[in-house]
Nucleic acid binder design. Structure first.
Lengths: 240, 240
DNA sequence: CCCAACGTCAACATAACTGTTGACATATGA
DNA sequence: TCATATGTCAACAGTTATGTTGACGTTGGG
């Protein structure tokens, strides 16, 4: 299914099939790449601020159109600049996505794990979790939604270091929530309606689905309201 | 070869994009188009069966990789055929998506509306709805998930007849579920935790989120189990 | 003033994808 | 047998995307 790279001569230097190996390492330096790295390492404030601006604009587009549906040209346009200029700040689209998503997604996991580790009763953990998650979603809008919407597998083919990392983050998140439910099942404070994981996914789903309809600025409800409502619903639904 | 719009001719109409008009009608006939239409209208059994095979293969890929992430070449490959052969059956990728999704999404709405129209008490409607939806998701896997995953806006730019239709379907679905909850709020059988819509979206979210983790064949739970569990959780959570 | 860091620009190379074409194969029934 | 419906193939055209390049501007500090 790789019929013809072309019938014309293909310069052997250029034809090195770089897409076979997964090579998360050693992308060929390239000139602008060196400038970028330099600027990044030097790390002036304005540089990083501009980087954040770019990430913010990208987040909006990723949220609206998805990763695949967002072109760097569109990001550049949103910033009223040229696409090539972005390369002064980021190496490629995936790195931009990473920039947008990484910190906030890790905060999210940390939140879930902190709640799990707290000393309060399981049911209260659940309530706190739901409330705090919704707060976080509201506070970090739309960045957290970008993260939720993308089914990592859709972003990249799945074997890169980055994608492994992201899967790990997701996994820890699911595990933390599941563990909270499990505690409740174990001490009898949560009814054994189904396995801890199924129940946990139900809760997560209710929260995560808000990405489809909740736009903080344009909503009659605050994220806090939603969190409180869903927490109440979940707790009443699960409590023994 | 290709540099049509390079420095030779600096097209002055650089800023006149042709994609402004939406033209859902009158795609130029084209030869294979005529053959396709002919075959379709004549409608032999084998023709439509092949069409269904194609839709099924496409559904798998759409589900795994999303609309944008799925190329017709990939669909052809999955069927061990050539991409061009697909054009004997479908006119373009969107039509294929439509083929996959349309019927089942309308069935889904019909289901929700039927439950709404049934004579049972609101809380029982809710329970029935959740159970039946999960059954439907299991039965129609992965087709319904394809539909859920795509945030129509990501599939097409939003002004076409098709996209209006799809938004309408979504809307009717949301409205039906909301109406069920509203009935419960009105007759006092459901606690006024939040607005009917917020609660409805919570329920829908819990169910729809299963698209991220539930694979019928590879799951220890049946769709029925999940439906029963979530129904129980929702009903207990909302009942007065 | 001048230089280096900062930032931008136009253009190119490469690739993937969609939609289309016209010729070619097969098989089926009249 | 032969015409027709059915189905496939290789190839191309047009579009859009990414990543890169090298030259060009701008600006503030020494």
């Amino acid at each position: 299914m790789r019929p013809e790279k072309s019938d014309t001569q293909l310069t052997p230097e250029h034809g090195v099939p770089a897409q076979v190996e997964v090579a998360d390492t050693a992308p060929p330096p390239s000139d602008i790449g060196r400038k970028r790295r330099l600027a990044f390492d030097k790390g002036s404030e304005s540089y990083h601020e501009r980087r954040r601006e770019i990430a913010k604009a990208a987040a909006q587009l990723f949220n609206q159109r998805g990763f695949k549906g967002t072109s760097l040209a569109a990001v550049a346009e949103a910033l009223a600049t040229d696409r090539a200029s972005l390369y002064y700040y980021i190496a490629n689209k995936r790195e931009l996505f990473d920039e947008v998503v990484r910190e906030v997604s890790e905060d999210n996991v940390a939140l879930a794990e902190a709640v799990l580790a707290s000393g309060i009763p399981p049911v209260e953990k659940l309530r706190t979790l739901v409330v705090e998650l919704m707060r976080s979603y509201g506070r970090n809008y739309p960045v957290l939604y970008v993260y939720i919407r993308e089914d990592l597998t859709h972003v990249e083919n799945g074997r890169t270091e980055w994608s492994r990392h992201m899967r790990g983050v997701n996994r820890r998140y699911d595990d933390a929530v599941t563990a909270i439910v499990q505690e409740g099942l174990d001490d009898g404070s949560i009814r054994p309606i189904a396995s801890a994981r199924v129940l946990a996914f139900g809760v997560i789903g209710m929260i995560n689905w808000t990405n489809r309809w909740f736009v903080p600025d344009r909503s009659p409800h605050s994220a806090d309201d939603l969190g409180a409502a869903y927490a109440e619903m979940v707790v009443a639904g699960l409590q023994a």
